[in-house]
Design a protein around this nucleic acid. Structure first.
Lengths: 107, 107
DNA sequence: CGCGAATTTGGCTAAATTGCCAAGTAGTTC
DNA sequence: GAACTACTTGGCAATTTAGCCAAATTCGCG
């Protein structure tokens, strides 16, 4: 694998990595449903420390998946790319495929 | 977030996590292009230790993304779910969105 | 200004991930 | 069965990640 190919897959991996955590997936999903949410709302929903949520959001932002806007003392986050939504369908497909195979094993 | 919701996002995160590495993404992509590959071929392409590649493949298998078949002394891996292919289009979209924003910043 | 709420950042520890080498297993060949 | 190839697994060190608390920052309000 040459340097260029390597760089290509590293760039892609960065984005996937940013999504590779239950809390971050949840927040992406929530933002896709609700348009935008402030950190305190997400914190309440996720149920961990606000500092932790803030760091998760920073990762999503860094990957270019979300953008933030400060209004007053609150910071609102929203999806930056609608395309991120398709991911969930993809993941869902894999889950269904796996579930199906599981059932076939039992039958 | 109740236990059920938690479990849902954890299951999804497992799958995403399995893909969150340049070498694993590369191998998935390669398998999607080529149908199947043995560990030694992938090892040569990726350029790391065979034991490392083997462990990467084990992770993909564990997530239900690939399946393996031993033929002779070689083990061939192939995609288990075609749906995994869509992921790459999704990632590509995000990359393009990001690149576009970058350009707009420069212009 | 001084206080309080929302958020980020520093610092730390625990846990997970990665990658290598070495050893083990399995199948092929002579 | 000895030697060889393909692969997996054990074990270890280095790096990264996650989550908490505490401190810093920023804004709103009286």
């Amino acid at each position: 694998m040459d340097a260029k190919t390597q760089a290509k897959y590293e760039a892609r991996a960065k984005i996937v990595k940013a999504m590779a955590h239950p809390a971050r997936l949840f927040m992406l999903d929530e933002l896709s449903r609700n348009g935008e949410r402030c950190v305190c709302e997400l914190t309440e929903m996720v149920g961990t420390d606000m500092s932790t949520v803030s760091r998760h959001l920073a990762q999503l932002k860094q990957a270019g998946l979300v953008e933030d806007e400060k209004r007053g003392q609150m910071v609102f986050y929203r999806l930056r790319v609608q395309c991120a939504l398709d991911f969930f369908d993809c993941i869902e497909s894999v889950i269904k495929c796996n579930a199906k195979s599981q059932q076939e094993l039992l039958a």
